[in-house]
């Protein structure tokens, strides 16, 4: 192992841990909140099962607004909210708040798009069989859209990693922050390059896993 990596081994492991914590929380938020929000966006659309213009417009506007923020501004803008939720606006835990919010907005849009790819005929058939809305969602929509949902999550996770790199501004730490503080600001270019390599490997692995899973579960 290169000498510089050995020297900073403890810090690097800590940075990797922080990145995993931030991205992990984002993934949880995406699945727990983003998936239902995206599904609701789909269901409330004109001509769909729960057609509801008000709910659709509100969700749509919210998702668009969050996604149109430059992420750095969103982080700063959310500081009071983060302080209210976590008790502080500084640190890795605080960093998960804006990350989770962008994660929800990001993934819910991709969920909506995946569900739009499900043939309408399948939903018709489900309705004709007497399926309730919940049954249509779980027994038909999610089953038919599953590979799209996985690919969407893969894309999202990679974006979350990218977003997490700037959480240094609120003391969130992580690999990106480490690369800036040690590699860039202390002129250890080789250290910065190693950090970039770690990120590239991480993204490659995630994309590979996501693509493989999506292919295996796609029987269409």
């Amino acid at each position: 192992m290169p000498e510089v990596l050995q020297r900073y081994e403890a810090e690097i492991w800590q940075a990797i841990g922080e990145t995993f914590a931030m991205v992990g929380m984002s993934i949880l938020a995406a699945i727990i909140v983003g998936l239902p929000v995206g599904t609701l966006l789909f269901l409330c659309r004109k001509g769909n099962l729960l057609e509801n213009r008000v709910v659709f417009s509100i969700l749509n506007l919210l998702v668009n607004t969050i996604r149109s923020f430059p992420f750095l501004l969103l982080v700063v803008f959310l500081i009071p909210f983060t302080r209210f939720i976590i008790g502080t606006a500084i640190g890795t835990a605080a960093a998960t708040v804006p990350l989770s919010i962008i994660a929800i907005a990001h993934y819910s849009r991709l969920v909506e798009q995946s569900l739009l790819d499900v043939p309408r005929g399948v939903i018709e058939a489900a309705k004709a069989m007497g399926a309730s809305v919940v049954e249509v969602v779980f027994k038909f929509l999610f089953v038919e859209a599953r590979s799209g949902l996985v690919l969407g999550l893969t894309t999202s996770i990679i974006s979350f990693i990218s977003y997490s790199t700037i959480m240094g501004v609120v003391g969130g730490g992580g690999i990106g922050d480490f690369a800036i503080r040690y590699g860039y600001q202390q002129f250890m270019t080789d250290l910065m390059i190693y950090m970039i390599i770690i990120m590239v490997i991480l993204v490659q692995c995630i994309q590979f896993i996501g693509t493989t899973v999506a292919r295996v579960i796609d029987k269409r």
Binding site: V122, E124, A125, M129, F140, V143, E144, I217, K219
Partner: peptide, 13 residues
């Protein structure tokens, strides 16, 4: 029961 021109089976099942 109902059947359709384009069958409308769930492709992933």
């Amino acid at each position: 029961g109902m059947i359709f021109q384009h069958f409308n089976l769930v492709a992933n099942l």
